[in-house]
Design a protein around this nucleic acid. Structure first.
Length: 337
DNA sequence: TAAATTTGACCTGT
DNA sequence: ACAGGTCAAATTTA
C-alpha cells in the first residue's frame, strides 16, 4: 500500500499533478478551438482524436498521483463534481486493510485473483477494432454463454515491469454487422502511453466512424445501440490477412482452433478513450449522461458537457489551496505555461 | 532468442 | 454445478 503523505512528498507530487492538470487545461482549450472551426476534414478529426487522447492521459496521470496519497493524509478535496469525490471514496475503500486482505490474490496460486469490477470499469461499443495507444497483451479467451464469439482478455503489457493493473475484455457481438464490446477495468499507471497512435483494424464501413461509450452495468454480451467509430490509420495488416474481420474467429468457435484472430492482433492496439476521465469512480456515480457519444460525422464532441474547461482552474485551486498558496500556484503554473 | 499468443487448468462467485 | 476470469506452460512469431 502506498504510504506517501502530503507533507512528505507534497512538493514533487503536487507539482506533477498541477502540471498534468495544466496540460489538460491547455489541451481542452485547444480542442475547443479545433471544434470551433466549421470546416472539418478527416485529418482534422484525427488530430482532435489525438488531443482527446492526450487529455485523457492527463486525467489518468493526475488521478494516479492523487490516488497515491492515503486518504486520511489528504487535504479535503471539496469539489462540486461528485465524480472526483467518489474517486476519493472509492480509493479509501480499496485502501482499507481488511478489504484488501479479502481480495488480494494468493501469489503463485493459479486462478487466484481479485474478481469483479474495479472502480473504473466501463464498457464501450464500437463497430471497429481501434487503437487506444496502450500496449496490451492477450492473456486468455473464453467462450461465453449465448455468445457466438469468444471473449478475449487483455492486460497491460507493462503489468510486470510497472505493475499496471489495467485490463480489458473484447467481445464481438452477434450483431450484423458485428460490434466490438470492450470492457475496461482499472486505469493505466504505466508511463507508456503511445499517443497519437490510432489504428483502424477493421473498418467494414469507413463512413461508419463514430464511437459510443456505455457506462451501464449491463453485461458486455448484451446488444447495445451503437454508432460508428472515429479512428485513424497507423499500420496496415499483413498482405494475406483477411482484412481484420472476424470471420476466422467465428470459424474457430466451431472448429476449436483459431487460424487468425484480429483481436489478438489488437493486443498491441486497442482503444481506451475515456478510462482516465472515469478513473476512480463507479459508473453509478456518473452525474452526466450514462452514454457518452462522440460522432465525428457531426463533430459533436461533448467534452464540455462532462467537465467544463474552467473546471481545470477550479480543480487546481480546490485540490491544492489548503496547503499551497495561490501565489505559489501561480508561480508554478506560470512556469509550466 | 525474447516476446507474444494459445489454451487447458484452476479459482471464485452465483 | 456452472460461467466467467486468470494463470502459466507450451507454442508460435518476429
Amino acid at each position: 500500500m502506498e504510504s506517501s503523505s502530503w507533507p512528505g512528498t507534497l512538493s514533487c507530487k503536487r507539482l506533477k499533478a498541477i502540471q498534468e492538470l495544466t496540460r489538460g487545461q491547455q489541451l481542452t482549450n485547444k480542442l475547443r478551438e479545433m471544434l470551433g472551426q466549421q470546416e472539418k476534414i478527416e485529418s482534422d478529426l484525427m488530430l482532435v482524436d489525438g488531443v482527446v487522447a492526450e487529455i485523457l492521459g492527463m486525467f489518468d496521470n493526475t488521478l494516479s498521483i492523487l490516488n497515491s496519497y492515503t486518504f486520511n493524509e489528504k487535504p479535503h478535496i471539496q469539489t462540486h463534481d461528485m465524480r472526483f469525490q467518489s474517486s476519493v471514496d472509492d480509493q479509501q475503500s480499496h485502501d482499507s486493510g481488511e478489504s484488501e486482505k479479502s481480495v488480494r490474490p494468493v501469489k503463485n496460486k493459479r486462478g487466484c485473483y481479485k474478481r469483479g469490477r474495479t472502480s473504473s470499469t466501463f464498457t464501450k461499443v464500437t463497430s471497429t477494432l481501434i487503437d487506444d495507444g496502450y500496449a496490451w497483451r492477450k492473456y486468455g479467451q473464453k467462450p461465453i454463454l449465448n455468445a457466438k464469439y469468444q471473449r478475449n482478455y487483455f492486460r497491460c503489457t507493462h503489468k510486470g515491469e510497472q505493475g499496471c493493473q489495467a485490463t480489458k475484455q473484447v467481445q464481438k457481438t452477434d450483431d450484423e454487422p458485428p460490434k466490438y464490446v470492450t470492457t475496461y477495468n482499472g486505469h493505466h499507471t504505466c508511463k507508456n502511453l503511445q499517443t497519437a497512435s490510432h489504428i483502424i483494424l477493421d473498418t467494414p464501413n469507413n463512413r461508419d466512424n463514430s464511437f459510443l461509450l456505455n457506462f451501464e452495468t449491463s453485461t458486455p454480451t448484451e446488444n447495445k445501440p451503437t454508432s460508428p467509430c472515429l479512428i485513424s490509420m497507423k499500420q496496415t495488416p499483413k498482405e494475406d490477412l483477411p482484412s481484420l474481420c472476424l470471420e476466422n474467429e467465428q470459424a474457430s468457435s466451431s472448429n476449436n482452433h483459431t487460424p487468425w484472430d484480429p483481436l489478438t492482433k489488437l493486443s498491441q492496439v486497442s482503444f481506451e478513450p475515456m478510462s482516465m476521465i472515469l478513473s476512480g469512480f463507479d459508473h453509478e456515480d456518473m452525474i452526466f449522461s450514462e452514454v457518452f457519444s462522440s460522432t465525428c460525422s457531426t463533430n459533436c464532441y461533448k467534452i464540455d458537457d462532462m467537465i467544463g474547461i474552467n473546471d481545470f482552474g477550479e480543480l487546481l485551486y480546490e485540490c491544492f489551496s489548503p496547503t499551497f498558496s495561490k501565489k505559489e500556484e501561480e508561480l508554478v503554473i506560470g512556469h509550466l505555461m
